[in-house]
């Protein structure tokens, strides 16, 4: 409060430093449409959704508030619980594997190999495909009759069985394979950029001290790449929360409810079941999980800035 008061006081006297509000006035005016869009579309609609998640809205939004009823029903629904469980499995595995694979590939490319550009393009290529295409491709690859299982059986190994998309116990891992195939290329590129940002002298110093290559990566390089890891983490986490199209293309939630994810629940209840309140409650829970991820990120950012 005191800062603002001071600023106003300064503006009143017309002396001293220019007012914070009027400084760069033109660029602030230019940014106004964007700020308005962000406020109305992102913040406004988010708040609207949260408010209406406490109502009994059906096809059209209505203001009869029912307290936490929608949330009680949500957490009592076995479909939602299965969705959350799937998301946790997918999330943990995808986070670890994408980071490990992305970093390993980047480190290998960083060893000044030949045809680096070609490899980089090949690894990044899956990212250029939409999730629907990726999902369909992997649906065919994992199809027991035409895909991997069929080919291996064709070679003579008759008892070979690999049909993750048709087995309710492991179907989420069939989706995980496709997700990692698509996502690790981008993480690799970000990691590679981070590795290129490491000063050559550090490598020289490590070599002088006689530290092995792997140990140098683990002990010196990775801690230095913290900002790159944080960026990767946020990108992967966002991809996990919004997981939807990959599942729709690969299994549409089946077999049974075995590969349901929260986003599908939101869509089905908002549009198919014509129950906006329930869909809003589910999407608010999704928002909550994003916030849980974002808060440590913002905290790390702020702390990093202060340190710098």
């Amino acid at each position: 409060m005191s800062v603002v008061d001071q600023g106003l006081a300064n503006a009143g006297t017309g002396k001293g430093k220019p007012n914070r509000l009027t400084r760069n006035l033109m660029s602030k005016i230019a940014a106004l449409p964007m700020i308005m869009t962000a406020m109305v579309v992102f913040v406004g609609c988010t708040i609207w959704t949260i408010v209406y998640s406490f109502t009994s809205s059906r096809l059209l939004p209505k203001e009869n508030f029912v307290g936490l009823d929608q949330y009680e029903r949500l957490w009592g629904s076995s479909r939602w619980l299965i969705s959350i469980q799937n998301l946790v499995w997918y999330g943990v595995c995808s986070l670890i594997l994408t980071l490990v694979i992305g970093f390993t590939l980047a480190a290998l490319l960083d060893r000044k190999i030949r045809f680096e550009n070609a490899f980089r393009s090949i690894f990044l290529f899956p990212f250029a495909l939409s999730f629907i295409v990726t999902g369909l491709v992997w649906q065919w690859i994992l199809n027991p009759d035409y895909g991997v299982q069929g080919v291996v059986r064709g070679w003579g190994w008759e008892s070979f069985s690999f049909d993750p998309l048709y087995n309710p116990d492991i179907v989420i891992f069939g989706i995980l394979i496709a997700g990692i195939w698509q996502g690790s290329g981008l993480i690799m590129c970000i990691m590679l950029a981070g590795l290129r940002g490491i000063d050559e002298d550090i490598w020289k110093a490590a070599r002088v001290d006689g530290i092995g290559t792997v140990k140098t990566y683990l002990v010196i390089i990775i801690p230095m790449m913290r900002p790159v890891f944080i960026t990767s983490l946020v990108l992967i986490a966002a991809g996990i929360i919004k997981l939807y199209d990959l599942v729709v293309a690969q299994t549409s939630g089946g077999p049974g409810l075995a590969s349901q994810v929260p986003a599908m629940y939101v869509y089905d209840y908002m549009f198919k079941a014509q129950n906006l309140g329930q869909g809003f409650a589910a999407s608010t829970m999704m928002l909550l999980s994003v916030v849980i991820i974002l808060i440590p990120y913002i905290y790390l950012q702020i702390r990093g800035n202060k340190n710098g």
Binding site: R58, S77, S78, R79, P168, G254, P255, G256, L257, A258, D268, Y269, K272, A273, Q274, N275, Q278
Partner: peptide
């Protein structure tokens, strides 16, 4: 039955038939 109730029954049936 409303679409909401039907969707819930459908979810139950999907779970029941597949598992």
């Amino acid at each position: 039955l409303s679409a909401d109730t039907q969707t819930q029954i459908e979810d139950l049936m999907v779970e029941f038939w597949a598992g």
